[in-house]
C-alpha cells in the first residue's frame, strides 16, 4: 500500500511577522514543515514501520525552497518526494487542484495531510483534494487504523470526539495530538540526500479568492503592572476583574 503525504512549508510558529511594501516579509524567517503536516509525515512513517504501508511519498506545492521541507520529511523516513512548482500566492483552490493532479497520477490508497496550515489557517486543502479525487475524507484525526480496505479514525469533533470509518482510498487530515514527530537522525539526514525527488510544474488553475490587503492588528498596549504583597495584589486584581472587565462571579 502506498501513502502520500502533503506537506506545506510555513513560517516557524515563533516567528514575528512584519509587512514590507504591503506584503508579508519573508526575509530572515525560519521555514519549517507545517507542524500539522509534520504529524502526518510521522503517522505515515509509523504505518510503514508497522508494515501497513510499503511506500511513503511526500509531496509539496510551492517555491523551490519547499525542497527543504521535502528533504526534512525524507530524513524522518519518507521514501521519495515530489516538488510541485507553484507560485506561493496560489489560493486553496489552486493548491488543491495542483496537489490532486499529482496524487491522481500516483494513485495511492491513502492521502495524509495536516488539517490546517499554521500560516493561512484555512483548513480547506485536504477536503478540497478529497472532493476533486472523489475520495471520502476524515478531518482532524487523533488516531488511525487500517483494516479490510477501510480506515477508522478518532477525531476531534464539535463538543466531543468521534470515531469515523471510511473506505480506502481516502484523504485523512491530522490534528497535532495524533503523535509526536521524530527528529531526523544524522543517518536519516545523510540518507535523505540520496532519496529520489522529482520536480513537476503545477497544473494551471486560477485563484478563486483575491487578497485585497494585509494589515497588522493594532498593537495591544500594556496596561497596569503591579508588584505588591500577594494580598494587596489579589484585592486589586479582584477589583479589576469585577469592575473593569465586569466578569460575573458564580458564587
Amino acid at each position: 500500500m502506498k501513502v502520500l503525504v502533503c506537506v506545506k512549508q510555513t513560517f516557524d510558529t515563533e516567528a514575528k511577522i512584519e509587512l514590507k511594501d504591503g506584503k508579508i516579509a519573508e526575509a530572515g524567517i525560519n521555514l519549517i514543515i507545517n507542524p500539522y503536516d509534520e504529524v502526518a509525515v510521522e503517522g505515515a512513517i509509523q504505518l510503514k514501520e508497522k508494515n501497513v504501508v510499503n511506500e511513503v511519498v511526500v509531496i509539496s506545492a510551492g517555491a523551490d525552497k519547499a525542497m527543504d521541507a521535502i528533504r526534512t520529511a525524507l530524513a524522518m523516513g519518507a521514501d521519495r518526494g515530489i516538488l510541485i512548482k507553484q507560485d506561493t500566492a496560489a489560493d486553496e483552490y489552486a493548491r488543491a487542484v495542483a496537489l490532486a493532479a499529482v496524487i491522481k497520477e500516483e494513485n495511492p490508497e491513502l492521502v495524509l495531510a495536516g488539517h490546517v496550515a499554521a500560516d493561512d489557517g484555512s483548513s480547506q486543502v485536504p477536503t478540497r483534494i478529497a472532493e476533486i479525487l472523489g475520495y471520502p475524507h476524515i478531518n482532524v484525526i487523533t488516531s488511525l487504523e487500517i483494516a479490510d480496505g477501510k480506515v477508522t479514525c478518532s477525531s476531534e469533533a464539535d463538543g466531543g470526539t468521534q470515531v469515523t470509518e471510511v473506505s480506502l482510498p481516502a484523504v485523512i487530515s491530522s490534528q497535532v495530538s495524533w503523535n509526536e514527530p521524530r527528529y531526523p537522525s544524522m543517518k536519516g539526514i545523510m540518507q535523505a540526500k540520496k532519496k529520489p525527488v522529482s520536480t513537476v510544474d503545477a497544473v494551471a488553475a486560477d485563484n478563486k479568492i483575491k487578497i485585497v490587503e494585509y494589515a497588522l492588528p493594532a498593537a495591544k498596549q500594556a496596561g497596569i503592572k503591579i508588584e505588591e504583597d500577594p494580598d494587596v495584589a489579589a484585592a486589586k486584581l479582584a477589583d479589576w476583574i469585577m469592575n473593569t472587565a465586569k466578569a460575573e462571579i458564580k458564587k
Binding site: 511577522i17 479568492i209 494589515a215 492588528p217
Partner: peptide, 10 residues
C-alpha cells in the same frame, strides 16, 4: 498566522 496578520480577501 493565528492573528499575527489580518488579510482582507475578496
Amino acid at each position: 498566522y493565528a492573528g499575527k496578520v489580518l488579510a482582507k480577501v475578496e
